[in-house]
Design a protein around this nucleic acid. Structure first.
Length: 273
DNA sequence: CGGTGGACCTGCTGGC
DNA sequence: TGCCAGCAGGTCCACC
């Protein structure tokens, strides 16, 4: 579900809701997430204050006043929302953080592919999910030269390569499909066979697409909601993702969904070579 | 080492 | 109406 623009949207909304609020009480209702929620999770957050909210790729990073960080990943179906405490709890609300002030934070995740961990400052750099992350296109920027080297050396399809978080951190299935549509490249094209100019085009389209999606508050297909539990709007602007059989926005040809591959792959057979 | 395929979960949809 | 197969935006690990 949530890729970089969705996580960035959650971050921006929650900045307005939770910064400088003390965490009064933490309830852990379900520990079985992608990694089990640690036994001391609640005690490490209670009494702390969230001073800053950052993002790296699809990870949200809440910086606490004791210099520890609380890291959240939303997986496929996760939501992190700030709501009034009297709003009824729902099935799959796994973590509830009561904050000073009028709101509480709820982590909700039906499929439990999400993640919530607290790390000490010295653990952050060595934390395995972070060690292998490539550049975040909005935080670090994308160097076309670096991307060219990775692309040129790879025997995989360009779609698989861009889905690899070690190559570009933050893209997922929706935005990889969309980037390739904008760059005019077939998802199944072998990465190493793409001309340099095409790779440069991909490198420049990635941050433009992500920024545009952030301006529309992300893409909501079914589950995704921002920090106020509101849907995004970018699904109305997608060029190929989920548009099988619908006309290409530039040439009118029916969008195709490729049969092979484990994830949905969408492209315009005329505009993407 | 690079690359692939399946596993991890629940919920929803469409076909029969 | 009920059941079952297939599919979903992510990541990790075993295996070739």
């Amino acid at each position: 579900m949530p890729e970089l623009p969705e996580v960035e949207t959650v971050r921006r909304v929650l900045c307005r809701r939770v910064l400088d609020r003390r965490i009064e009480q933490v309830e852990v209702l379900e520990r079985r997430l992608r990694m089990p929620v640690a036994l001391d999770f609640a005690s490490r957050l209670e009494g702390r204050t969230i001073r800053e909210l950052r993002r790296r790729a699809k990870y949200l990073i809440a910086c606490l006043d004791d210099d520890c960080v609380w890291i959240v990943h939303l997986g496929m179906s996760g939501k992190l929302i700030a709501v009034p405490p009297d709003r009824p709890r729902e099935r799959h609300d796994h973590l509830v953080l009561r904050l000073a002030g009028p709101l509480e934070l709820r982590f909700h995740d039906p499929r439990r592919f999400g993640l919530a961990v607290v790390l000490a400052p010295n653990e952050l750099a060595a934390w395995p999910p972070f060690r292998s992350l490539g550049p975040d296109p909005l935080v670090d920027g994308l160097d076309p030269e670096d991307l060219w080297h990775r692309v040129h050396a790879s025997g995989r399809s360009i779609k698989d390569l861009l889905m690899d978080q070690g190559v570009v951190a933050g893209l997922g299935n929706i935005y990889v499909n969309e980037v390739l549509a904008r760059a005019g490249v077939r998802p199944a094209a072998r990465a190493c066979r793409l001309p340099r100019a095409t790779v440069e085009r991909i490198a420049s389209e990635i941050p433009l697409l992500l920024q545009e999606a952030v301006r529309w508050c992300g893409t909501t297909f079914s589950d995704y909601r921002d920090g106020d539990d509101r849907a995004g709007e970018f699904q109305r602007h997608l060029r190929v993702y989920g548009r099988t059989g619908e006309p290409c926005r530039s040439c009118g040809t029916a969008i195709r969904r490729s049969a092979r591959g484990n994830r949905g792959t969408f492209y315009c057979p005329r505009c993407q070579k």
